[in-house]
Design a protein around this nucleic acid. Structure first.
Lengths: 148, 148
DNA sequence: TTGCATCCGGTACCTGGGTACAGGCTTACC
DNA sequence: GGTAAGCCTGTACCCAGGTACCGGATGCAA
């Protein structure tokens, strides 16, 4: 059993297993998404094994359109055992955001399904001559009043 | 009735109504998201009125984590009356992506709800001492094999 | 103890999605 | 027809999120 096995994963291992760049690990550390890991005597980082899972979480959240700052918030909210009232507030806000996202995605999904199910395809000469923008409904439910 | 009324909206009007920058309109035009509008004799752009709605759609899709290229694809898919088989293929792919996004969002939502509902809050000294990463499940369902 | 793969910090660079500015022409209203 | 607001093209710049590169130090196995 080598020393590495009991001390943790090194950057290269984490990066490889999580499918991210080594530089990205250090970047996330700077951004506060990854806690500073332990170091070897020589100063090399040694990560706890669940870091890989955490990175997958981060990447998943990003794919959903959250910024790194937001991801940091989400992780923070989830991490604390007894969230402060403030944190609760923000979590509630995030839930509302998420609900909106889900609603929008559902609308887009429906539109795409129509395309695939050939609502227009088979009708070929689709009744809705001016059918150009099928996702229009999304626009009408946008979250905060943009319009004057 | 002025000439403008029958010819279309000018950039400033569209930008204002859609809540975007004028520069953004031209940027979208360059990127192919907005068709080149008609021009006045003097060369000023004159947009059809539904451009505003279209912009809202674009912005909504962006909030959901789609890139501009992807938005362009989505719009394209929705626009065609009789989609080519290829387009159908891509639409199907997008639907799968969207389903994944919805699933992930749902998971995150559930985790946040737990936080808000004080599953830990009231337990204060939460049983799950190592509860640190509640969204872990997301990572395990990530879309395409990242791992070697 | 040598040698190669890795890792270190620091800095520079890249892409996506915009945004700002300069210098000049149009529009619209008096 | 004068003039202010608005628009034109072109180019430069900005921010987020990474990536690449550099010169030097570590890790570890033979």
């Amino acid at each position: 059993m080598s020393a590495a096995e009991q001390a943790g994963l090194r950057t290269g291992e984490v990066a490889e297993q999580a499918g991210v760049n080594i530089q990205t690990l250090r970047y996330y550390e700077r951004r506060g998404l990854l806690a500073e890991p332990h170091r070897s005597n020589g100063g090399h980082r040694l990560y706890p094994p669940d870091t890989v899972a955490l990175l997958n979480v981060i990447k998943a959240a990003q794919r959903l359109g959250f910024t790194l700052d937001e991801v940091a918030d989400l992780l923070d909210a989830g991490r604390r055992r007894h969230p402060s009232p403030d944190l609760r507030e923000r979590a509630i806000g995030k839930i509302a955001e998420i609900d909106q996202k889900i609603a929008d995605l559902t609308t887009i999904r429906a539109s795409l399904t129509e395309v695939v199910d050939a609502r227009c395809d088979s009708l070929t000469n689709c009744t809705c001559a001016d059918c150009p923008i099928p996702y229009l409904t999304i626009g009408t439910t946008r979250p905060s009043g943009d319009r004057a």
